[in-house]
């Protein structure tokens, strides 16, 4: 019991420093609280520090509250999202994003109704990992927000939920959002299997013509992830993309789809100047397993890059079964 007494004494001393006139001292007290052993005693004290008059103390408390999942603390952190000091709001958002228990979702969803801007984006980000059904409706609504970060965060929630009903609205953003980063996330968020292919395919095809290469890259990857045979002609077209990075992902997807139609473009890519693409083309040709690729692959056995040579050899053995 001695230990417990010592510990209480230690915590009392820290609590006393928590009301010291010097904010520096209060801030250190917050840090020290986390090293004590009784989380039940610590939580209320940290919550109190979250209301401190000094922003540096509030920020430290918001950081320290990561990992606490009680309703009082979540409410406190939600309030702190609107703190006048940006470092406090940022720390609170960070701690909320670490929430793991789905039951905390209700509080977050409720708070969404009046939230705006940074606050709203932060709550949506916190909801993403929780995957609670109640977040579907508000996330769909948030797709119309004027703030890019809010729409991006809402897409995060919808992508993780993998809800079929969200496919249409996500597809709209994938093709027509004004922010490239939002379009990219939307394209990726379409990549779940239960989705209605007829709604997804046109959106992915449109995204293949996006002016930003990272959106195109996401689109060819998603076509591969979903195993969409209907996407093959478009992937073949993407093998002509001006960015080799896009071609590389297209090659990977064509390999996954075992597309025989792609043998000519993949064979051509075996001799592209960037060896990363040559490697991927060799892998894909092995996966497709079409004998028409043999001459090109045999030529690739002389490639100056050892990785390309090895992968061409492996592809040849996959095709010939030897």
């Amino acid at each position: 019991m001695n230990e417990l007494a010592n510990q209480n004494e230690e915590i009392s001393a820290i609590l006393a420093r928590l009301i010291d006139p010097d904010p520096g001292v209060r801030r250190i007290a917050v840090l020290d609280l986390l090293d004590t052993d009784d989380y039940d005693l610590v939580a209320p004290a940290l919550l109190q520090a979250l209301g401190d008059q000094d922003a540096s103390v509030r920020a430290e408390a918001a950081i320290a509250l990561e990992g606490f999942e009680t309703p009082e603390i979540i409410r406190g952190l939600l309030m702190a999202l609107t703190d006048e000091a940006p470092e406090v709001a940022k720390a609170a958002a960070q701690s909320l994003a670490e929430l793991k228990s789905p039951v905390t979702g209700v509080l977050l969803v409720t708070a969404l109704s009046t939230a705006k801007g940074f606050q709203k984006a932060s709550i949506l980000r916190a909801l993403r990992e929780l995957r609670v059904p109640a977040s579907l409706a508000p996330a769909l609504a948030a797709l119309n927000d004027t703030d890019d970060t809010v729409r991006a965060a809402a897409l995060g929630v919808l992508g993780y939920l993998k809800a079929p009903s969200a496919v249409g609205p996500i597809a709209v953003l994938a093709t027509s959002d004004k922010a490239p980063q939002v379009r990219r996330i939307a394209v990726g968020a379409l990549g779940f299997e239960a989705a209605d292919l007829s709604a997804i395919l046109p959106a992915l095809i449109t995204a293949l013509r996006d002016e930003f290469w990272q959106v195109r890259e996401e689109s060819v990857a998603t076509l591969g992830k979903l195993g969409m045979d209907q996407g093959v002609p478009y992937l073949i077209e993407a093998m002509m993309d001006e960015y080799w990075q896009v071609r590389l992902k297209a090659a990977r997807s064509l390999g996954k789809l075992r597309s025989r139609e792609a043998v000519p473009v993949l064979s051509k890519a075996l001799f592209h100047q960037v060896s990363n693409l040559r490697k991927e083309a060799a892998v894909a040709l092995g996966e497709v397993g079409d004998a028409r690729a043999i001459p090109a692959l045999e030529k690739a056995l002389q490639d100056p890059d050892p990785d390309v040579r090895k992968l061409a050899g492996l592809a040849l053995s996959q095709i010939t079964g030897k």
């Binding site: 897409l155 993998k162 990726g188 990549g191």
Partner: peptide, 22 residues
């Protein structure tokens, strides 16, 4: 992951495993 360690995921929350070995 449940403890809060962050692994890369794609936009649908699936682990973004990368091919490096052959």
């Amino acid at each position: 992951n449940n403890w809060g360690v962050k692994f890369e995921k794609d936009e649908t929350g699936d682990y973004a495993v990368k091919k490096v070995h052959h």
